[in-house]
């Protein structure tokens, strides 16, 4: 009898669980262990109360008696986020800077990707290598290098002084400007590569067909090249925008004391103030803020893809 049940279970799993299951299970397990469970921990901390001790928060679950367990959810941390406009300003600043960096990356990255995609095959590999090459140096060192370039006695100021364009050194470092430059510089390859891939996939005869039908190069670019590279533009923008929102190293090294970014605020709450519950609330708040642009962009991307490969599309002649 037991054997029979055992056999049934076995054959059930044998039928249901194919090798495909294991392929999918691997990344899911990864996300579960290293994203979802830590996320739940942070969520828990964000609802707890601050205390002096190790760890610096009180448990949210308490045994009150034999059969009673009390949950103490402290939503004060979240009120704090709204009540003190520091956090809102930090998030808005981050969104603005992220958007600025994304647009800057797009403006610089698209022509570069276009040039690489148009270069002869022999040079394409070389040019792509040159885009990827900076990754071989530590991220931190590359950001430090910008300090050397932008500081009072840095390269830019020295050259401008020597040329007589300015009389006193400019304050370039520790400004929003230097942070934007840093983010744009660091995330540029993430914009170039996906755009390059989508440009590369465009059949050259489509451009010829457009010319042949009387469309001049500029118009062809806007009507054919740009729409067909939209998937690359969107994924490149996501790859720049999302990580730049939470960026901490660049604003910390290149930004001034007035450069308010959410990543930096989070760091301060956690390490300087040792207020883990508020830091947790900031982290959760940021996540909620991030989810919106991601969902929105994914929705746009789906629409673009559907227009190009799928269902319908109206004629508007």
């Amino acid at each position: 009898m037991i054997l029979k049940i055992f056999w049934r279970l076995f054959s059930f799993f044998k039928r249901r669980i194919s090798s495909r299951f294991f392929v999918i299970a691997l990344p899911f397990t990864w996300v579960l262990l290293f994203f979802f469970i830590p996320f739940l921990l942070v969520l828990k901390i964000s609802f707890s109360e601050l205390t002096v001790g190790i760890p610096p928060y009180l448990p949210i679950m308490e045994r009150m008696g034999e059969d009673v367990i009390a949950f103490k959810l402290n939503i004060g941390n979240y009120f704090y986020l709204v009540w003190d406009d520091l956090y809102i300003r930090a998030i808005l600043n981050s969104l603005g800077l992220g958007a600025l960096a994304t647009i800057a990356c797009l403006i610089i990255g698209f022509p570069m990707a276009y040039a690489i995609a148009r270069a002869s095959l022999k040079y394409q590999t070389l040019l792509l290598m040159m885009v990827i090459l900076p990754f071989w140096t530590s991220f931190l060192i590359r950001v430090y290098a910008w300090i050397g370039i932008l500081s009072y006695h840095g390269v830019v100021n020295t050259v401008l002084l020597k040329l007589g364009i300015i009389e006193a050194p400019l304050r370039l470092l520790n400004t929003i400007f230097s942070v934007s430059i840093g983010i744009t510089y660091c995330y540029l390859p993430f914009m170039i590569l996906p755009i390059y891939v989508s440009l590369q996939k465009i059949d050259p005869s489509l451009l010829e067909a457009a010319y042949d039908l009387g469309s001049r190069p500029f118009r062809t670019f806007w009507k054919v090249t740009v729409p067909l590279s939209m998937p690359g533009i969107i994924s490149g923008s996501l790859l720049v925008f999302i990580p730049s929102l939470g960026e901490f190293v660049i604003p910390d090294l290149l930004g001034g004391s007035d450069t308010l970014m959410i990543g930096r605020v989070l760091w301060n709450e956690f390490f300087v103030n040792r207020d883990w519950p508020v830091a947790g609330a900031v982290a959760i708040g940021m996540l909620v803020f991030l989810v919106f642009p991601i969902v929105l962009l994914q929705y746009i991307q789906k629409n673009v893809q559907r227009d190009q490969m799928g269902e319908g599309g109206q004629m508007n002649a």
């Binding site: 059949d203 489509l206 010319y211 042949d212 067909l228 004629m315």
Partner: peptide, 29 residues
């Protein structure tokens, strides 16, 4: 240049614009 010639071509690969409907493709020129 091709965009100034009174000549049109039908490509071997057909080169239809994948992001446009049949009507938009034909209307493009």
């Amino acid at each position: 240049p091709p965009y100034e010639r009174p000549v049109n071509m039908m490509f071997q690969s057909y080169a239809l614009f994948p992001h446009m409907s049949v009507g938009q493709n034909v209307a493009f020129g």
